[in-house]
Amino acid sequence: MIRKLMKKPEIGVITSLIIVFALFGVMSKGAFLSIGVLKTVFAVSVELGIVAIGVTHVLVAAEIDLSVGSIYGFSALMFAKMYKMLSPGLAAIVVLVLGMGIGFANGYIRVKTRVPSLIVTLGSMMTLRGIIYFVTGGFTQSVKASFFTKILGSDILDPLWLILVAFIFTVVLTRTPFGNRLLATGGNIETARTLGVKVDKIRVVAFMISSTLASLAGLISISRLRVASATHGELMELEAIAAAVMGGTLLTGGYGSVVGSTMGAILIASLRSGLLLSGAPSYWYVAFLGIILVVASVINLTVVRKLMSSS
């Protein structure tokens, strides 16, 4: 059982998660494990986790998506701008369709022009952030509580959304023909192509999954917080990529774990709250995140190397 577990690339994030929980539990004299704190940790995990799950699909395709932080912020703020004109439900649908469209644009430009996705999505990240400032005038936007915000932004339901999204996309990635073709495309694009996989279509869909889930997470965040500034979601793309990599997803493509990415997001969220609670200055968070990212990646790579070498 343990030997089997040691072969799972999620092992790095599981170990780190246990250590971090134990460490913060002790350092905060138990306060970290209180209901209130755990609630915050999970609330942050839900949003980051959903974004990370989306990004995982792009990473599996051996691509990268830097635009998810901006899509997340854009979706939250567009909802805030539109929900009064339309109904909240309709505004949410418009936002999700916009999000999906951005992913389509990212993917389409990537596969048609062959410009690396790093550049394409860096471009859309900056463009969208610019649009956010233009639309909001740089001001914080707020949203009134409604049935919709209660459903999408409640402490009790949100973890369920995360579990649901994680379940659906675990199935998509590991149990569907699309998932197998996505893994093949990321693992060896030439082989996938010669075996008849429509690699361009597959990659465009991966970008659409990423952007749509970032958009959904943005909606959840605005429903929960009910205010968002123009900087909402900045640097989230890097946290999401970090979460995925910690969870065992290979930046080189061809392998990824939705569950791993989810746990990576929980780990990052715990770090943020835990450091704060243990009285460490907030700037330590980024440093700590950096260290954990490298450590978890080293553990994962060791596991993957073992899997990839004859033994």
């Binding site: 149990r175 569907t176 023909p177 893994l183 990321g186 060896n188 082989t191 061809g254």
Partner: peptide, 26 residues
């Protein structure tokens, strides 16, 4: 493809599926 096992490799692009409503599962 290096990162996939034999079964998944064998059927890339022509996977054996089970239909469940409109969905297809491996």
């Amino acid at each position: 493809v290096d990162t996939l096992d034999i079964a998944r490799n064998f059927f890339i692009g022509r996977e054996i599926v089970r239909k469940w409503g409109p969905f297809k599962f491996l």
